[in-house]
């Protein structure tokens, strides 16, 4: 089933990636070919087969969830794109609306 540029546009919006119209067309074409190839999996009878989400055999690895001292606060802050009064500056969450 080919993917339309309209669908690519929708997925890109969900994934928060701005695409040019050339990119939309190219992704529609190349992703359609990839999805078409994936149809090979329909040959496989998987009735009664459980999915494998991980291969370790480990189960429920837990640790105590408690705060620990951060010894690299300064270095972490240095990586922030914009800082004011030792706080990360971000745009207002409710300031704009999503593009359609």
């Amino acid at each position: 089933m080919p993917l339309s540029t309209q669908e690519v546009k929708k997925i890109a919006q969900l994934a928060r990636i701005k695409l040019t119209s050339e990119e939309e067309a190219r992704h529609a074409e190349t992703i359609s070919a990839v999805l078409d190839y994936m149809n090979i999996l329909n040959e496989v009878d998987t009735s009664g087969v459980e999915p494998t989400f991980q291969v370790t055999g480990l189960e429920d690895v837990t640790r105590i969830d408690e705060p620990r001292d951060c010894k690299i606060t300064k270095e972490l802050m240095a990586q922030m794109p914009e800082v004011e009064n030792a706080e990360l500056v971000v745009p207002g969450v409710f300031a704009g609306t999503e593009e359609e």
């Binding site: 919006q13 928060r16 990636i17 794109p81 914009e82 990360l88 971000v90 745009p91 207002g92 704009g96």
Partner: peptide
């Protein structure tokens, strides 16, 4: 996403900044 680390581009709102 350009928020906590890495390069951040200007955007007219949050969505635009991410995208």
């Amino acid at each position: 996403d350009g928020i906590r680390y890495g390069s951040r581009q200007k955007g007219k709102d949050l969505y635009d900044l991410y995208a």
